[in-house]
Simulated assay, not measured.
Amino acid sequence: MKGVPIMNKVFIVLVFGGVPLSVIGTLMHWSSILLFIIYCVTIIALASFMGRATESLAIIAGPRIGGLLNATFGNAVELIISIFALKAGLIGVVLASLTGSVIGNLLLVAGLSFFIGGIKFKRQSFNVYDARHNSGLLMFGVIVAFVIPEVFSKSMDASKTLIFSIGISVILITLYLAALFFKLVTHRGVYQTKDESRALHADEVPEWSKGKAIAVLFLATIAVAYISEHLVHTFTEVGKTFGWTELFIGVVIVAIVGNAAEHASAIIMAYKNKMDVAVEIAVGSTLQIAMFVAPLLVLISLFFPTTMRLLFTLPELIAMVTAALLMIVISNDGESNWFEGATLLAAYVIMGIGFYLL
């Protein structure tokens, strides 16, 4: 491994040691606390591989597709965990993890990206047109699609609320696919600045080839999904040991661990001053959770005994709306710095304390 950066060597050791340990520990029923630690460390190491693969694809395909690929592979883990939770009837945990993903991406991931990138560079910029486009989608996907069902459900019975949730889910998925078609097909490059156009044609060499990067993403996602599925089963014992409530585990722990891949990737991209990719990962992942993963889970739940409705608790709704509005205000100018990152992180810590004490 001559010439490989020291941190990459560490992650290689953790992956090739952590994955077998995770399988062996699961089969031999080791302590839940020990398995929890092994699972988390292994997922973080796998996330580093996903980040490197995504960076290679971003150089080859451009920041938008690179960010979209990372958000998709990262959210695949969240989707798999949620499907198993739905099957077990844990609707509250699923909704809490969705909440955690939204506030985690908008406040923690974006906050760390802005903060760490801002320490190295006094001012970083990203596509202002993308930022404004995403602002409208955030308003719709988080505020309209999540708040409206809660308001109208006050005057509906359970069956009508479910029908309403199904209708909203179909609309959300349709609009999300239309948004992808808009950005990647009909208006691809239309709002690209001259600086970005030159950047895309810069003489950058990807670390891995397209085939190898896709293969690494695919294999790492399978490994993360396997480990994450078993990680969920350790939460009850871990919660009792550390005094964590089910809501706190769903909003904070599941969301952070389940989205570790894009967390790592966004921070790495920001540190390398590739803010278009970093912002696309943080905001794009949020939009994918709100407009695709959440409504898809509503439709999937129809095949299980317990159905899920798009009804969040008041603290969850307020947290998501606040995170969306704060991100819109901070990112609408297409620039970021370490202080804006610190502001987002402070909001996340405040919400985390609130959910812990709730």
Score class of each variant (00 low, 15 high):
S169K: 04
A225G: 02
M269Y: 08
I166H: 03
S165Y: 09
V251I: 13
V257K: 07
I168S: 02
S153E: 01
D276C: 14
A278V: 15
Y176F: 05
K194I: 12
Y191H: 11
A178N: 05
V170A: 08
V277S: 04
D203M: 10
A220T: 15
M269S: 14
P206D: 12
I227K: 00
M156C: 07
H201V: 07
A220H: 03
R198T: 13
N273S: 14
S169A: 11
T193G: 10
I166P: 03
I168W: 03
T236G: 15
T236L: 15
E229D: 13
K194T: 10
V205P: 00
S153H: 04
Y226H: 10
V185H: 01
A278C: 11
M275N: 08
V252C: 07
V216W: 04
G211Q: 10
V216M: 14
L247A: 15
E262W: 03
T161M: 11
W208F: 15
G243R: 10
A282G: 00
L200H: 04
F164R: 06
K272C: 05
M275F: 13
L231G: 08
I253S: 01
G250I: 12
T234V: 06
V254W: 04
V254Q: 04
E204T: 14
I168L: 08
A202Y: 07
A178I: 15
E229L: 12
F181A: 02
K272Y: 01
L175M: 13
Y226P: 01
I281F: 04
V252H: 02
G243C: 15
A270W: 11
I227H: 00
K183C: 01
I166G: 01
S285W: 04
D276L: 12
I168Y: 06
V252K: 02
S209I: 14
A260L: 07
Y271F: 13
G189E: 00
A266G: 09
F164W: 05
L177V: 13
G239M: 05
E280P: 03
A220Y: 10
L184F: 09
L177E: 03
S169F: 04
V254M: 09
I214S: 05
A223V: 07
A264N: 09
V283R: 07
I214D: 01
V205N: 01
S155V: 14
T186G: 05
R188L: 13
R198W: 03
M269W: 03
A264E: 10
D203T: 11
F248S: 13
H201G: 11
V224Q: 08
V257L: 09
F218W: 15
S197N: 12
K154R: 15
W244D: 05
K160Q: 10
K274N: 15
L217N: 02
S285F: 05
H201S: 10
F182W: 03
K183W: 03
N259K: 06
D195M: 13
L180W: 00
T186L: 00
L247P: 02
